[in-house]
Amino acid sequence: QPEVYGTIAAAEFGRREWRRALEAAERGLAFDAEHVTCNNLRAMALVRLGRKSEAGATMDATLARDPHDSVSHANMGWTKLEQGERKEAMAHFREALRIDPGNGWARSGLVEAIKAGNPVYAIMLKYFLWMGKLSSRTMWMIVLGGYVAYRFLRQLAADPRWTPWVIPLIIAYVGFVLLSWLAAPLFDLALFLHPMGKHALDDDARTRAALVGGALGLALVAGGLSFVVSDSYQLVILALVSGVLSIPLSAIHVCAEGWPRRAMAGIAGALAAVGFSAWIGL
């Protein structure tokens, strides 16, 4: 039953175990070399393992056998996007959405391809794809390693000879982490305000863009007013609270629907309540 190996491959892919996903997909293909699910998962695992030309060849063959499969077109689009061929990627995503307008995998690919038209975002997209390829253990190592490096740099900053070098580094690191948390929703926001880009966002991305945009908009208005109004520390606090609140707000729609999303929405709501009551109190 190649379908069973396809399911195993999908599960391993979801666990970011690219090599195991590839093995399961290839075991399924040993029984049926034309199995669409196994071929798709084989290509997805190959892209994650950096074997892009093999992934492209797999998708070429799969599409040649069944040119009307939406998932195969979406997969071809992602493979092309990974190879930096944006125009071809967009053509495949559009074809995938024409066959199945509900294909979220193709829609998110089209969004990424539109974003990649922006040269600043092209660099960030490469960064996000690279981050997406790391196993969950490596991602935790980066977070913890960054924290350890931060502690070390703070100690170094205590020495006056090092201070002028260390402070900009710490600011750059904090800025890097903040941007890595907010880059995706900020560009969703840019798409949201774009007449064409709006249609490429799904409902989740639209809600997230509206939430993050609202929080950042309030922060900008309050921050801007604080320059005009004298003795305006309340406005500065309001700008800080609503600006920082955009971080947990942007995380809500990253969580799976159901209890994880409700939990994250609850956390963000509780933080908003604490932050705004602190502001009112002060």
Binding site: I237, L271, G275, A278, W279
Partner: peptide
């Protein structure tokens, strides 16, 4: 005043909470 101290504590709790929520989000994210 007591109200001011409480508000400051809430503000500190807010910023700590933001940090902790990132770990929660990492864990809850798909």
């Amino acid at each position: 005043s007591a109200a001011e101290t409480l508000s400051l504590a809430a503000l500190i709790l807010f910023f700590l909470g933001i940090f902790v929520s990132q770990f929660a989000a990492n864990w809850l994210a798909t």
